[in-house]
Design a protein around this nucleic acid. Structure first.
Length: 560
RNA sequence: UGAACUAUGGUGUAAUGGUAACACAGCAGAUUUUGGUUCUGUCGUUCCAGGUUCGAAUCCUGGUAGUUCAACCA
């Protein structure tokens, strides 16, 4: 008997509960894995959906299965092709491909036929009650409901009425089709759930063909079943729906898809409710769904997040069934980690302070060689111009420095990154006492890579040569909300009171000349500052850079 | 006051009856022409009470807390 030697030293990462479920089903001999990502096209996808996408597509990939994209388009009132298109774009951007693209509306005919089956079995009836009466009749979580007076209509009458509903004989709200189950059931969803409602509304795919539309509970499980989904994965709030999901499938005796639930993603300082995000867009609190402050996938993309960083984040937060709130710092860690490896370094001054090198020849321009990415030698080098007048960042100079301040201050010397050592000789102020210029001398023997006497200086600061500098608009983003949990409100306030008025700050800064042709969305690191990318609105004549994330700043932290 | 789900460091996730671990965050240090990166060290955890067991985060019982469900939304 051959001895199997497992010589792969890699320790298998422990399986999450969904992987265990799949592994168990495979062990039972059910080898086919078919998942689906089922968004309703009524808004843009956000980071929470990204988690779901990574789970559904990731699981299918890991177990040699397939993942479908299915639009849950059963409510034409809220849905639109604009959303369909954006959802497809975002999934592809994340790096996933669906096996097939389907719509719940593709199944309207089949769903209708199944409704007829249920009516014939005496398990569905047309109810003429008003919306209010139905709501009251449903009872509450602690009291049973009451049966509708229309509950015991004959099969023939139900068939006739349902056909006429379909044919458009009745107005919106006049009638609904309900499953006949149990008005006293402890699970509210079993108290004769509504299967169809009348909606004389044009549908973005079926046009005016239908005026009755199936409800989620009647459509979702059967849609899964039609696609022979083996693992229908959704978030925890659908947990109570699972019994009704199973009930329709079993009663109709169709392919047994099964539903599994995981805890949705929550992020500190972030709102994930589609309804509230829509409100921010509609009221122009943000510039659109792709505003870089939005937690949407397109917002993250515009801010400069990479697909790999979002996928790494989904992997990092894991999958489980308990409610969670993830620290925003985890997301930021994931982008920094990715961008550190791939983003080329550049110099940019965000809050300019002019420095004149008094002993440097007027009109002289030198070129210094700078490394593009210390993490990747293949990224090569570039030239950056140096001259008598440069800009440095205002916070790299202090007239009266605190202890351990390594940067520029009167009488002290710092290294200009990739260039000379300079020493501050004089501080020029305006009439109000504001510092407007610094005068320094440089050590001609201290050029990049050399130091005449081996003396070392702790401080290294970035700079941009004034004459060649590009001016640019820089957009600095903070979270939209200034409260860790934006839903938590004081008495008499709303979540909108937690909006941070300074979540977007636009400033104008100076960039080194090589930044001129940076393609939109291309990540660069402004050395010592953060990661940035040109905004979608950026043009050669009006450069706009978005801050993706700051660099870690232990000096700032130390001085908090 | 019904039902379902959940409970492990500050945060998230593991440990599948046998040494509570990994990551993020924090703190301290080393290296550094980015106060970045990298490296090293460090802090700190099983909701409560009983029970089963040689042994419990894990199994049982009972509490407690949180979340979800009463749209003709999904």
């Amino acid at each position: 008997m051959a001895i199997e030697i497992n010589d792969t030293p890699t320790k298998e990462k422990s399986a999450n509960f969904l992987e265990e479920i799949i592994q168990e089903s495979i062990a039972r001999g059910e080898t086919r894995v078919q998942t689906r990502f089922p968004p309703e096209p009524n808004g843009y996808l956000h980071i929470g959906h990204a988690k779901s996408i990574c789970i559904n597509f990731g699981l299918a990939k890991k177990y040699g299965g397939k993942c479908n994209l299915r639009f849950d388009d059963t409510n034409p009132v809220k849905e639109d092709v604009e959303y369909v298109d954006s959802i497809k774009r975002d999934i592809q951007w994340l790096g996933f491909d669906w096996a097939i693209e389907r719509y719940a509306s593709d199944y309207f005919e089949q769903l209708y036929d199944w409704a007829i089956v249920l009516i014939n079995k005496g398990l569905a009836y047309v109810d003429d009650q008003t919306q209010e009466a139905i709501r009251e009749g449903r009872g509450t979580v602690s009291e049973p409901g009451k049966e509708s007076p229309w509950r015991n209509r004959s099969v023939a009458e139900n068939l006739d009425l349902f056909t006429r509903m379909k044919n458009g004989e009745f107005a919106d709200g006049a009638k609904v089709l309900r499953a006949k189950i149990d008005m006293a059931h402890p699970n509210m969803l079993f108290r004769d759930p509504i299967m169809y409602r009348i909606l004389h509304t044009e549908h973005h795919r079926t046009g005016n063909k239908w005026c009755i539309y199936p409800m989620y509970d009647y459509a979702h499980g059967q849609s899964d079943s039609i696609e022979q989904i083996t693992h229908s994965i959704c978030t925890l709030e659908f947990d109570v729906h699972r019994p009704i999901y199973d009930w329709f499938i079993q009663t109709l005796d169709i392919f047994p898809s099964h539903q599994y639930e995981f805890a949705r993603l929550n992020l500190t300082y972030t709102l994930m409710s589609k309804r509230k995000l829509l409100k921010l867009v509609q009221e122009h609190t943000v510039t659109g769904w792709d505003d870089p402050r939005m937690p949407t996938i397109c917002g993250l993309r515009r801010k400069g997040y990479t697909p790999a960083s979002v996928r790494a984040f989904a992997e990092m937060v894991g999958v489980a069934k308990r409610d969670n709130v993830i620290d925003l710092s985890k997301l930021e860690y994931c982008v920094r980690e990715d961008l550190n490896k791939i983003a080329e370094r550049r110099m940019a001054v965000l809050d300019p302070l002019k420095v004149v090198i008094t002993n440097y020849e007027e009109g002289r321009i030198e070129q210094f060689t700078a490394v593009n990415n210390p993490e990747n030698e293949d990224a090569g080098t570039r030239q950056i111009p140096f001259s008598k007048e440069i800009y440095i960042d205002r916070n790299d100079f202090m007239e009266v420095p605190p202890a351990k301040y390594y940067r520029l201050s009167p009488g002290h010397e710092v290294r200009l990154r990739y260039a000379y050592l300079i020493q501050c000789q004089e501080v020029i102020k305006d009439a109000d006492g504001k510092i407007i210029e610094i005068r320094c001398t440089y050590d001609p023997s201290s050029g990049n890579g050399s130091s005449s006497d081996g003396r070392r200086v702790k401080g290294v600061i970035h700079w941009v040569s004034a004459a060649q500098a590009l001016s640019a608009e820089i957009r600095l983003f903070k979270p939209l909300f200034n409260k860790e949990n934006p839903e938590e409100v004081e008495e008499g306030q709303t979540w909108e009171d937690n909006l941070d008025p300074e979540s977007l700050v636009k400033i104008s800064g100076f960039l080194e000349p090589s930044l001129r042709e940076t393609p939109i969305g291309q990540a660069v690191q402004f050395e010592r500052v953060g990661y940035f990318c040109p905004d979608t609105e950026s043009t050669p004549n009006h450069l706009i850079f978005n801050r993706t994330v700051t660099l870690k700043d232990s000096w700032a932290k130390m001085n908090k």
